[in-house]
Design a protein around this nucleic acid. Structure first.
Length: 212
DNA sequence: AGCAAGATTAGC
DNA sequence: CTAATCTTGCTA
């Protein structure tokens, strides 16, 4: 069972909430790795200064303007790839960032890809850059279809309540409540109430202080 | 051309 | 707490 393309071609917030509990699967020659989605963030087409597409189409964010159900993978902070699912109709730029997974299959493989981590380690997939590494997602997956193998979503179960907070690590649009997660899940990237100002935000404060 | 910023992570 | 690390997009 694979979620069809029309699962994604809806308003971004609705897709974001629907993604919680679904299982992200990546089949590779080394084996299959899969994890249940426990945390996401929505990036909206309109009135969202935190969205890459908020200042128009560029070479980097063009996948967000394409049809729904494709991957938007981009490089961040010089070290990490982040994985998004494109939403909305074509030419309407929306996406959902996958921020944390609960491992369900291929734990040994994920641990191997993550280096020193053990298969039962929470650090395996509890962050947007970490889960990309654990599943073996790379730059080459940018703009790949997610409604067919080898990288796809399988229907899963959700019985937990959905929690909502502001998004992590942004300097623009940081006040919008667009981060959705399964309450009390062990694999959340930031434990509720423990969020610290991100490096991006601190950098900005510093730059502002120098100017004044 | 050059530079600053960034949807993060791991290590001291 | 801070360095690492490099692509992108704008010209601070």
């Amino acid at each position: 069972m694979i979620l069809p393309q029309n699962f994604y071609s809806k308003p971004t917030v609705r897709v974001a909430r629907a993604l919680l509990g679904q299982v992200l699967v990546h089949e590779t020659p080394q084996g299959t790795a899969a994890g249940r989605i426990v945390e996401v963030e929505a990036y909206l087409p309109k009135k969202d200064p935190g969205c890459h597409a908020s200042r128009g189409k560029t070479a980097r964010n063009s996948p967000m303007f394409g049809p729904a159900g494709f991957a938007y993978v981009y490089f961040c902070y010089g070290n990490h790839y982040l994985f998004n699912v494109v939403t909305e109709k074509e030419d309407v730029p929306g996406a959902v960032l996958i921020r944390a997974l609960e491992p369900v299959e291929g734990l040994e493989l994920m641990a191997q890809r993550r280096g020193k981590f053990l298969p039962d380690d929470l650090g395996l997939t509890n962050g947007p850059g970490k889960l990309v590494q654990a599943l073996g997602i790379e730059r080459a997956h940018n703009q790949k279809a997610l409604f067919k193998k080898p990288l796809y979503l399988r229907p899963g179960q959700r019985k937990e309540k959905i929690g909502v907070t502001t998004r992590i690590g942004l300097t623009e649009g940081a006040d919008l409540p667009l981060r959705f997660f399964l309450t009390d899940n062990d694999y959340l990237s930031v434990r509720p109430g423990k969020a610290r100002p991100s490096m991006a935000m601190r950098k900005k404060m510093k730059a502002r202080a120098v100017k004044v």
